[in-house]
């Protein structure tokens, strides 16, 4: 009987954990910011979520005709890193209520990193809010989920 209870508790715990993972993993996929200039693939590494640029509307720098690099990065050693493949969303963890927190978003257009909260408003829509210090001093962008063309 003792072993049965232990087994039941273990299965319940494992199932709850898996359920939470499934809920949190709804964030995975390819998303497009509202301006349509880039596509970002969100993936999971360990227990955290990261987003990297996988497509650019304008992949080459018009001044050099070479693939765009992270030229605005405050760290000079990063300024030759290609933007395609760059992780602009970092360290997000799932909290609850379709919200991922504790992460940062990097804006390659000005080399700034902001605190960030992601809210999933429906299965195909994310509110990405980057802010300075407090949430009120920020800007929300709406990202849409992408899928293979039918």
């Amino acid at each position: 009987m003792k072993y049965f209870l232990f087994f039941t508790a273990f299965i319940a715990l494992a199932s709850f954990s898996t359920l939470q993972d499934t809920e949190a993993d709804r964030l995975l996929g390819v998303w497009e910011p509202s301006n349509g200039k880039a596509r970002v693939k969100i993936e999971k590494i360990g227990n955290k979520y990261y987003g990297k640029i996988v497509w650019l509307k304008e992949p080459n720098d018009p001044a050099t005709n070479q693939p765009k690099v992270d030229s605005k990065n405050p760290d000079a050693s990063m300024r030759t890193v290609p933007l395609k493949g760059y992780r602009m969303l970092k360290d997000f963890t799932y909290s609850s209520n379709s919200q991922w927190e504790n992460g940062t978003i990097y804006d390659p257009e000005n080399g700034s990193t902001y605190k960030c909260i992601i809210k999933m408003t429906d299965a195909n829509t994310l509110d990405i809010r980057g802010y300075i210090g407090i949430e009120a001093l920020g800007r929300t962008d709406v990202w849409k989920r992408l899928e293979m063309k039918k």
Binding site: E32, K41, V54, G85, T125, R145, E147, M148, K149, K150
Partner: peptide
């Protein structure tokens, strides 16, 4: 990674 696979995408909505 082969980034070309992300060209042929469209909105889910």
């Amino acid at each position: 990674e082969d980034f070309s696979m992300y060209e042929n995408l469209d909105f889910a909505d």
